[in-house]
């Protein structure tokens, strides 16, 4: 099965890259973008067939490596 993981910056953590992207969008003539937050998308191919076990395992991966809990949140989608 597949795990899709979204890693995003926590609220209150400044995102200078997101700001730069927002400015670039405005410069290209796209208006109406009030804010941009940049994150990461990670896709895993898992051997596990039990989705509950898979999620628990990926949760551990997120805590130990895939995210930095000081600055980032994560969400896991198993399919």
């Amino acid at each position: 099965m597949k795990a899709r993981i979204y890693v995003t910056l926590k609220n209150g953590v400044l995102d200078p890259q997101g700001k730069a992207i927002q400015h670039a969008l405005v410069a290209l003539g796209f208006d109406g973008v009030d804010d941009v937050r940049q994150g990461k998308f990670i896709e895993l191919e898992l051997r596990e067939t039990d989705s509950v076990k898979a999620k628990a395992n990926v949760e551990e991966m997120c805590k130990k490596l895939l995210s930095n809990p000081v600055i980032e949140n994560y969400s896991i989608h198993i399919e």
Partner: peptide, 17 residues
């Protein structure tokens, strides 16, 4: 060191990028 947790906090992209 911050990634190991031996020191608190994190080092992010420079504000100027």
């Amino acid at each position: 060191l911050t990634e190991t947790g031996l020191l608190p906090g994190a080092l992010m992209r420079n504000a100027s990028l």
